[in-house]
Design a protein around this nucleic acid. Structure first.
Lengths: 199, 199
DNA sequence: CTAAAAAGCCTAGCAACGCTAGAAATTGGA
DNA sequence: TCCAATTTCTAGCGTTGCTAGGCTTTTTAG
């Protein structure tokens, strides 16, 4: 009875449609503009349909965030791989990798500000504290760890340095997005950060 | 005719009352709970009175933020002064000052999470980009600059390093508040940060 | 001291919000 | 073709930010 199967598939497609529409709307007009009515209009269904897929609006934003975690992981690992390939095991390979990861992260945040907010700024129900972290986010963090590891003080596990590296990038991303830093000097700040860790 | 004067003073007091009530409510229940009705209830006036003092809710949050800028400046400068006094012009005076400022900043953020959000996280109308920065915030940033300056690469003005230092602390503060970092290792992360800059 | 003018405040209401119950419509199997 | 099950929509509740207009209080003038 492939009728059930077909329905199941259609439902999943519609779920994805909702998530995509929410993301586009947020990116275009900000998360405040993502209301159940506007979103229902966009996907051409009524509001209750949204609630048959997601518990509430926050769950939709969380689904968008999850999408972002995957894309961020891809961006970071690819950037690191590309940098490594370019610097063919040369001496500066590690620091180039670090710079590549930093730039990729800030580019990602700058290019998808609403997505980034869903992932790391908006108060979300994705419980990070209880260890229930999405697998895709764990992967992104692993990319950080690998980039930082060569510069960890011998004898330490480098976990704190990794967290600090991430925090610094997060701070740069959010303050830059809020126009609280000199807009034209982001590259310089990255150089300083990479220099401090790898120098 | 001191009648005008008296009224003016009463109005200012009531303005302050509103700001204080908003801050307390936000700190107690989060900014989402700060609604015009609840706030009006707390100050024992009707909603329109709020609007006779502030353009809208965001303006009230901005007033709270402004209050925070002043307090943060005080906290940072005092911490730095205390560290300097303790390390009587010794060799490590500068790095102790840096650590003191970092810890004071993170303590401030941790002790007043809602206030910190109003200052640096919530989307606000306080226009930072156009240079129209509150004087009190400029002072806080100056405290950062002075703490970082001893460690700037000779020949540079250290502005990027200062922005990076602030960004790192901001990232640590917000990710810690969102329980996205190991809650028990904040001190260690600060040590790493100070070590990178002053080491 | 009284009455008109000014100022201040509150009641009541609008549009839009998140979310949901129950009616209406569509679909699948006999 | 008809019935039952599923799906979808209409309509509505309570709450939000914000405001118009009436009411009360205070100030001024006679």
């Amino acid at each position: 009875m492939p009728v059930q199967e077909r329905k199941q598939k259609a439902r999943e497609q519609r779920s994805q449609l909702i998530v995509s529409a929410a993301r586009e709307l947020a990116e275009a007009e900000g998360w405040d503009a993502v209301t159940t009515r506007k979103l229902a209009d966009r996907v051409e269904y009524s509001q209750p349909v949204l609630y048959s897929h997601f518990k509430n609006m926050d769950a939709i934003a969380a689904a968008v965030a999850l999408e972002g975690f995957g894309e961020l992981t891809t961006a970071l690992t690819e950037a690191r791989a590309a940098a490594k390939a370019a610097a063919r095991a040369g001496e500066k390979s590690a620091s180039e990798g670090l710079r590549a990861v930093a730039e990729a992260y800030l580019d990602f945040a700058g290019e998808h500000p609403a997505l980034y907010q869903a992932m790391f700024v908006r108060p979300t129900q994705l419980t990070f504290a209880t260890g229930e972290i999405p697998a895709s986010l764990r992967e992104a963090f692993a990319a950080f760890r690998e980039a930082v590891e060569p510069f960890a003080r011998p004898g330490t596990d480098g976990e704190s340095l990794t967290e600090l590296f991430w925090s610094s990038l997060h701070g740069l991303a959010t303050l830059q997005a809020g126009a609280r830093l000199r807009q034209t000097h982001q590259q310089e700040r990255v150089e300083v950060l990479v220099g401090l860790i790898a120098g």
